[in-house]
Design a protein around this nucleic acid. Sequence first.
DNA 1: ACCTGAACACCGTTCAAGT
DNA 2: ACCTGAACACCGTTCAAGT
Lengths: 219, 219
Amino acid sequence: MARRTEALSRERIVDAAVELLDTVGEGGLTFRALTERLATGAGAIYWHVANKGELLTAATDAVVGTALAAEPDGASPPDRVRAVALALFDAVDDHPWIAAQLSRGSGQVTTPRILESLGRQVRAMGVPRSEWFSVSTALVQYVVGAATQNAVNGTLPGPSTSREELLGAVAERWEELDPEEWPFTRAIAGQMRVHDDREQFLAGLDLVLTGIAALHPGT
Amino acid sequence: MARRTEALSRERIVDAAVELLDTVGEGGLTFRALTERLATGAGAIYWHVANKGELLTAATDAVVGTALAAEPDGASPPDRVRAVALALFDAVDDHPWIAAQLSRGSGQVTTPRILESLGRQVRAMGVPRSEWFSVSTALVQYVVGAATQNAVNGTLPGPSTSREELLGAVAERWEELDPEEWPFTRAIAGQMRVHDDREQFLAGLDLVLTGIAALHPGT
DNA sequence: ACCTGAACACCGTTCAAGT
DNA sequence: ACCTGAACACCGTTCAAGT
């Protein structure tokens, strides 16, 4: 708290950006808000950061990097895949603005982190080398895709809405669809209301892991 | 071409928005550009559309809706899953701005279309009803996630760059990484250079489909 | 080398006024 | 009911000037 006049640095700028994104959302990250928060001028920020896009990429990379920094816990390679996947899932859940970011330019920079982390487990599972690329990429796509879409579902109405209300609202909308045109979606609306996001995420991951084990039985 | 004075309508506005997004990209969709293209004033557009967000959602929904409109071709349910998945894949490939959109508010509106289309095939595969939600959701997450991330990879440098140059650039970046820190990513950099996106997308889909068949053998 | 802050060009949205 | 277009508030970025 006593850091009145700490030197401006790229790191402090990125930290402030993450804070703003977390508290005020994507629309709240503004150079004016940043200058105020950092008690400086706009030009000072531009000295350390090329533009807003680079700042968003750096913020995304910082958060994901932290989430994946620890060596993944788990007795077996599939368990470690689950650990990595959950770490990312929780990071996106805590910082929903990451979702849109990963579907933009930031993905180019940040995805390799996820690929490296998951890929090592693919290798450890004994998948033949010729399939490393295909299998690890598919795994990354499921994990990032699922985590991302989950965050989308979590941010429709006001920030005060509870998880149950949110799922209930979606379920209600689904139940009002024309049954002629939307038979399947209507049939599962009830389960939307009661499902658990993390469990569902892990269940989907199990499909992929089972598929890997079946199609590429390791050594 | 002779439609000099066609009445303004929500549909014409959305069509113009899609055109702008396709040609000038996400940053090119501007109310000024729209008014010029439609030869009208800003207020006229706001009469038919609440705001820019709604316009983006409508544009996304229109494109995805068209892509999924046809009954999916295929002899078996898995084949029809592949048909639906490829239709979406190609739509995102042709309109890369959809990727970011699906990771934002538009997902809420558009995802049910994809869920319905894929879910019907899940049902046809004989997956027990209690697993419909879990399985269909996971499938949607893989398909949307993979299609989305693929579009991210396709739009780094200028629009003139060829597919090979693009993959080559990514592969090069990966090959320059520190091998101590990035052993796996470096090991697969070569395959990044030569892989085919659609094939890779289908290979990943096969992992999921195989997992479904293994964990939820139908009737 | 690093910071200040006014200025510029541009954007989404509104609204009184028209038909 | 639908359209016009000027006006408003706000944003990202630049840059001459300072230290």
